[in-house]
Design a protein around this nucleic acid. Sequence first.
RNA 1: CGGGGUGUGGCGAAGUUUGGUAUCGCGCUUGGUUCGGGACCAAGAGGCCUCGGGUUCGAAUCCCGACACUCCGACCA
Length: 478
Amino acid sequence: MAQQEKLVKEITSMKEDFAKWYTDVVKKAELASYSGVRGCMVVRPYGTALWENIRNELNARFKATGHENVMMPLFIPESLLQKEKDHVEGFAPEVAWVTHGGDEKLQERLCVRPTSETLFCDHYSEIIHSYRDLPKLYNQWCSVVRWEKTTRPFLRTMEFFWQEGHTMHETAKDAIEETERMLNIYADFAEQCLAIPVVKGKKTEKEKFAGAISTYTIEALMHDGKALQSATSHYFGDGFSKAFNIQFTGRDNTLQYPHQTSWGLSSRIIGAIIMTHGDDNGLVLPPAVAPIEVVILPIAMHKEGVLDKARQLKQRLAAGFRVKLDDSDNSAGWKFSEYEMKGVPLRLEIGPRDIVNNQCVLVRRDNMEKTVVSLDELEAKVTELLKAVRDGLFEKALRRREEMTYSATNLEELKDIADNRPGFIKAMWCGEQECEEKLKDIAGVSSRCIPFEQEQISDECVCCGKSAKLMLYWGKAY
RNA sequence: CGGGGUGUGGCGAAGUUUGGUAUCGCGCUUGGUUCGGGACCAAGAGGCCUCGGGUUCGAAUCCCGACACUCCGACCA
């Protein structure tokens, strides 16, 4: 379809008001509701199912690389949080404190975990004694709390859902490899499963995680040209090990500190899915994580045989796909809109005319393209079209990112782009934090990452003009 | 933390300037007709107008205060 009409009138168009479009989609697709608690959302069944699929995909990848899931406490005693100086400085301003149990004041206040490095380290100090105990490859799925000032569903909530991997290794080399391995898993997941193209790279000193030696990131570009950090992987060296006194006896019979990593992906990724693939008709979900891959809509359902046929098709498809049959008595048009809002990748229409011809109609959500398929080859066609949806989404997102990625060689140019053309800006950087801060002040952009794939845009720092070897992605971010 | 906005049946709003019977659309219930792009008719149910004070014969409306949610910036996944 050359022009996609806006069929759903209850969603504000992106062009009109992107922020409102976003919240409209969250609500209309029934992903989440606002709750009575400031900054906290109710993740509704559809949103939860989406998160569960994300979880399942990632868990499979984590387990395939030797990781084990654990569950750590929700609370961190203040003294434990205090142990690593940079870490506590980074998080102290945004933690929630528990000061009372019932009416009784606690001896030591507890914070609600904003992240669990300290808890893992405390535990690791008890269970790691020998190089034979390493590596320890733990992960947990949980929610954490950060007392945010402004919040938006999925993108920034006070409580959010995530997984956090925390691993300990015998050598720095092993830990660095783990950091990279996990970043690659995230990147692969984002691109293959979520159809979100990402830039892999390293954060600058200014942007890295509190307490880390280095932070790696995958950065994605949203529809409105703002960047969104979609997952991170950190290398900690032995800083926490020393702070928490985690030691093991090495192969050479000397006491050593293990090297640590952590890595995480949060429910924010749902925001990325919405803002990468969504359109004015609502959500568009990548098939690999869509709660419903195929929705079956019986047409003229009261007519003889239609519903039976629809049920039959459901049973066939349920063997290999997540499928839903909507046999409610809402009108067909209503259902079309409903599942478009919910971003179901493939719609199957089956009506009296189709039954006569032993066929059905499959409609792709990403481009609304209709295909008439013979029921004899239904499964094969569904498989093919779901893959086509994933590929179509990825290509569209990649093309858009490329169109919205600019290069700048001097400050005026960069400021002009930042002011007028939302997107990524590639520019050289001398390595001084001063220049980073200046760009933030002058152009309102922050460094997104130092991409692994470097290009020589020019020879001088975009800001100060001194010689520069590193090319960075810059942009406005969520 | 600064600046705005909004609180009225389940949802979205009008009514507030100028105090006087609680309104509209959607949704919901029941019955009927429909059914290939958000169908139609009829009948019905549903309100401490965010909360607390005040002014008044009378307050959704005016005054004082509180709370909540939300958007835009600065800070952060």
